[in-house]
Design a protein around this nucleic acid. Structure first.
Length: 953
RNA sequence: GGGCCUGUAGCUCAGUCGGUCAGAGCGCACGCCUGAUAAGCGUGAGGUCGGCCGUUCAAAUCGGCCCAGGCCCA
């Protein structure tokens, strides 16, 4: 049997079928690094004068390994940046890190001990700086490994000296514009440390505390009773008191109000013998009435009136031992979990009290000193330690007949992690950025309206937060942070009159020597002889302020960008509505009266297959490093692309496996394109659009239209749409139709025939387009493909823009008609396939080429199919097709109605003819040429004649 | 407890203003091919559209309640 294999044009490529990504991706990373791809792109952009699109990076915190959420965030940004490059933009990307703050301090403390105790603050800061740098380096390696393109040589770090200096300058500008406010706020306070504690330094342990019920006597009984609904018409008798319950009697000297829940039902209860008290009326939440009476051991009581908590607002009550009238206020934080439903409120001693107190403009009184003792001017309790004062206060209450009941309880209470001693809440002086004193809130809300929020609900979210948020407390009492470099007059408490100038001088010093330049500064250097009159503030800034001014320290500073710091896009997780989006907005509005971004895009959090959050304790964490090592970064990237990131993003082994399946399909499709482009030189062999076969025009038009959708989807950040389109294109249009059909033409026609070159021309354009579509997402794989594509090309796919696909139809109308015709042909093919399958199951055939088809058609569909002539058999991949105008279709023919309402009857049968060993079609003319007894006529012509011609497929 | 959001086949996603049997690809099952072969092709089976109650001639699509989950607060 003669072998005709070498007369065929079989596909061939060195492009490997398997990606072997974990091993090969690092090779591409090395290429890109050597090439300085990012630098080259920037240079190219400048040369071409491209418009800038700036995605400004939100800095991750420089502590710990990156988790999958970091990966998602950076990969999404990378999709956008790369797609912008391909769309012809100059898309700089400067990655950043957030480097100051408590978590790093805690890490450093673990190793080196406490600042000011085990090492000097300056030494401590040096260690923090070193630690942060090491974390940045480690995270950078992981981000790089994901294939994220950016200026990794020069990232921004909030601890860079110039960044630190700009933080100070930003603060200076905000102060100049009148937003700074000095106030006080309760913080966790350890009386043994004599200092504030951060949330992370607080441990909860059981503690025994007094629990007391205290009378706050209502001053205007009539006003109260007027607000109530009375029971049985009588009002009861005796004094009226609201009863509060507290486990911290020592906070009573600072009391400024009594809070009730506006939605709860309150009862006025006639009690004629609580202890040995005279007849009286007590107010407490109805839901807690039975509990309280039980606690107080009172059997004899009855309700004389009811009211809603909201009805009590504004009534005045008498402080139990001071000459002080305090109001009843409303607070949702008041619950019926314990107590009386009335909460004594001391804004200086509790977070919630502070918040609700702000609303009512209550005084933030703090009679307790740093050592936990009442200040000397505190009546009754001066000098006493708060915990020993508890008993004293109970005695005073008793003596004044204001104590209803006292007992002890055991409950969970915050303790200092160092001393293991109970801590207190104590108001301390702090610095705030005022939301309202210079209209910051309103201006910020206005800017929210001028920003595009994606998804749209982001606007409602941040708006609600801004409307309700309190002033921004920007001061911290920490070591590793940027100083609030202010001088405050010892007598007047006022800022130095030359503050603006001084801040700039400090900034310049910090620019040279980092934050230590302030901490080590002798005030006399700046203030001269005035120095003794001023306090040098040693507070540090909230780290949210650090990252919040990146629009100034990064965008504003970078050359080549417009002078105002407005980024095209910020992109972070949806938690940043409270975090960075807000801190950036507030600082930018405070400094410039405008938002730092035009658009804000958010993504959801990663969850497991069941939609539950990831945590070590649940054991459902997916580590990006593991995914990269096992499957490759491109698989991780493809998963990110495939998932609609606006909601939660589910990851699991199965999901990643499916992603890897999809990857393989895409990769193999690309591989097959390359394999069929073997020997194709686009400059020499490309067929002019007018000379292309119909089927090749079809795929080119399909490709052109798909590209339009893909480019649009990139512009809209709809990556999951791209994934679906791309995958379907590979599987459906290409895999099961176009590529399957052109195999015959590719393999059997002559190497340089128009038939074959036409298909290669189409394949070439498809490949050129596809590799670019892939590049932002499957960056490694696209680069891999790029190296194998025929024709002269530059070093990286990213150095190009979307492929300019040829127009193959005269106009859109003609293209529409052609595509619609092919849709009908595909439906005919589907019908034929069903019949072939039936025949195959019945054992009549194996390959579809073993069969012949008889098609009985209505007039219109017949006309359409006839235009393909003999080439219809290639479209159906059968050995022969016979067309009939429907008359009386044979009984074995199956009837089909197309969606166009065309009707066809399909009959298939095994071909009676011998099989051509070269093209595998069964033809009557096999063996007609004695020189080639096993070949069909067309193959003979292709082997040693002029070669067959094709028009359509 | 509050604000914002999510819930369509095993997986990832479509389902425009409520109206032809709820779609696609993958996966799965079965078959074919062996000239894309740790590939490719064909056929097929999978869904109470989270649940309940309403509005409507008609709801995955509108309203209410509930359940599950997420982010941010309390």
């Amino acid at each position: 049997m003669a072998d005709y294999k070498d007369t065929l044009n079989l596909p061939h490529t060195e492009f490997p079928m398997r990606g072997n990504l974990p091993k090969r991706e690092p090779e591409f990373l090395a290429r890109w690094a050597k090439l300085d791809l990012y630098g080259k792109l920037r240079k190219l952009a400048r040369k071409e004068g491209r418009p800038v699109f700036e995605l400004h990076d939100g800095p991750p915190y420089a502590n710990g390994e990156i988790h999958i959420g970091h990966a998602v965030n950076k990969v999404l940004k990378d999709f956008i940046v790369k797609s912008k490059w391909l769309s012809g933009f100059d898309a700089p990307y400067i990655p950043g890190w957030d480097c100051h703050g408590l978590p790093i301090e805690l890490q450093v403390e673990k190793t080196f001990g406490k600042p000011g105790v085990d090492l000097t603050p300056a030494e401590f800061r040096a260690q923090c700086r070193k630690y942060a740098a090491s974390q940045v380096e480690a995270q950078k390696q992981d981000f790089l490994r994901l294939g994220v393109l950016g200026d990794w040589q020069r990232p921004y770090l909030t601890m860079d000296f110039h960044y630190e200096a700009d933080i100070v300058r930003a603060l200076g500008r905000i102060i100049e514009r009148g937003h700074l406010h000095k106030g006080s706020k309760p913080v966790h306070w350890c009386v043994d440390c004599g200092s504030a504690l951060a949330e992370a330094e607080v441990e909860y342990e059981d503690k025994t505390s007094p629990a007391i019920d205290v009378r706050f006597t209502v001053l205007d009984e009539e006003a109260l009773m007027a607000r109530c609904h009375h029971v049985e018409g009588h009002e009861g008798n005796g004094p009226v008191s609201v009863v509060i319950w507290t486990t911290t009697p020592w906070t009573l000297p600072a009391n400024q109000a009594v809070a009730v829940n506006p939605n709860l039902e309150y009862a006025v209860v006639q009690c004629d013998g609580v202890g040995d008290h005279v007849p009286e009326r007590l107010i407490l939440a109805e839901a807690l009435l039975a509990d309280a009476m039980n606690r107080w051991d009172v059997q004899d009581y009855h309700v004389v009136a009811y009211c809603k908590g909201a009805d009590l607002e504004g009534l005045k009550v008498q402080h139990p031992f001071y000459e002080r009238e305090v109001p009843i206020i409303l607070g949702e934080h008041v619950t019926t979990e314990a107590g009386t439903g009335a909460v004594h409120t001391a804004p200086g001693h509790g977070q919630e009290d502070f918040t609700v107190g702000n609303r009512y403009r209550l005084k933030v009184d703090n009679p307790v000193g740093p050592d936990g003792r009442f200040l000397p001017d505190t009546p009754l309790f001066a000098g006493m330690s708060v915990f020993t004062a508890n008993d004293e206060i109970i005695d005073v209450l008793k003596a004044r007949n204001q104590l209803v009941h006292a007992e002890s309880i055991r409950h969970s209470y915050p303790h200092c992690w160092r001393h293991k001693t109970p801590i207190i809440f104590r108001a301390t002086p702090q610095w705030f950025i005022s939301m309202d004193q210079q209209g910051l809130r309103d201006a910020a809300l206005r800017e929210v309206g001028r920003t595009r929020w994606l998804p749209e609900w982001g606007e409602a979210r941040i708006r609600a937060m801004l409307e309700n948020r309190p002033d921004w407390c920007i001061s911290r009492q920490r070591t590793w942070g940027v100083p609030i470099p202010l001088f405050v007059h010892k007598e007047t408490g006022k800022l130095h009159p030359r503050t603006a100038e001084l801040v700039e001088q400090v900034a310049q010093r910090i620019e040279q020597g980092g934050v230590d330049a302030w901490f080590e500064l002798d005030p006399a250097e700046l203030l001269g002889p005035e120095a003794p009159d001023y306090d040098k503030i040693t507070d540090t800034l909230d780290v949210w302020f650090d990252s919040g001014v990146s629009h100034y320290a990064v965008l504003h500073r970078r050359e080549g960008v417009a002078h105002y710091p407005v980024a095209n896009l910020y992109l972070e997780g949806s938690d940043q509505h409270r975090g960075w989006f807000q801190s950036s907005l507030l600082t930018a509005v405070a400094m410039y009266d405008r938002a730092p971004y035009r658009s804000v895009l958010t993504h959801g959090f990663t969850v497991d297959a069941r939609g539950q959050k990831m945590s070590k304790s649940r054991g459902n964490v997916v580590a990006p490093q593991k995914v990269v090592d096992r499957l490759g970064a491109d698989i991780l990237r493809l998963w990110v692309a495939a998932t609609d990131y606006r909601a939660e993003m589910a990851v699991s082994d199965e999901i990643l496996k499916r992603t890897a399946d999809a990857y393989r399909r895409i990769r193999n499709t690309a591989r097959y394109l390359l394999a069929n482009l073997n020997g194709f030189d686009p400059r020499k062999h490309a067929v002019a659009p007018a000379d292309l076969l119909d089927l090749d025009r079809w795929i080119l038009e399909k490709t052109r239209r798909l590209q339009e959708r893909i480019v649009l989807a990139y512009a809209d950040y709809e990556f999951h749409v791209i994934y679906q389109e791309l995958h379907n294109f590979c599987a459906v249009e290409l895999g099961s139709f176009y590529l399957d059909i052109i195999k015959d033409r590719q393999y059997t026609t002559q190497r340089d025939s128009r038939a074959r070159r036409s298909a290669q021309t189409a394949l070439y354009h498809v490949a050129e387009a596809l590799v670019r579509w892939l590049a932002p997402i499957l960056s490694f794989t696209a680069e891999d493909i790029w190296q194998f594509l025929p024709g002269k090309r530059n070093e990286s796919v990213l150095l190009n823009t979307w492929h300019d696909l040829p127009t193959v139809f005269a106009d859109a109308g003609q293209a529409d008609r052609a595509l619609a015709d092919w849709d009908r042909i595909i439906e005919v093919r589907d019908a034929v396939n069903k019949e072939l399958e039936a025949l195959r199951v019945a054992g009549g055939i194996g390959s579809s080429l073993d069969a012949e088809v008889d098609l009985h058609c209505g007039r219109e569909i017949l006309d359409l199919l006839e235009t393909l002539g003999d080439e219809l058999r290639f479209v159906l991949i059968t050995s022969d097709v016979r067309l009939y105008l429907v008359d009386t279709p044979p009984p074995e023919a199956q009837h089909y109605t197309l969606s166009s309402n065309d009707e066809i009857w399909v009959a298939v049968a095994p071909s009676p003819h011998p099989k051509c060993i070269r093209c595998w079609h069964h033809r009557p003319d096999v063996g007609a040429n004695p020189k080639h007894p096993e070949l069909c006529g067309r193959c003979v012509e292709n082997v040693e004649g002029p070669g067959e011609t094709r028009q359509h497929a």
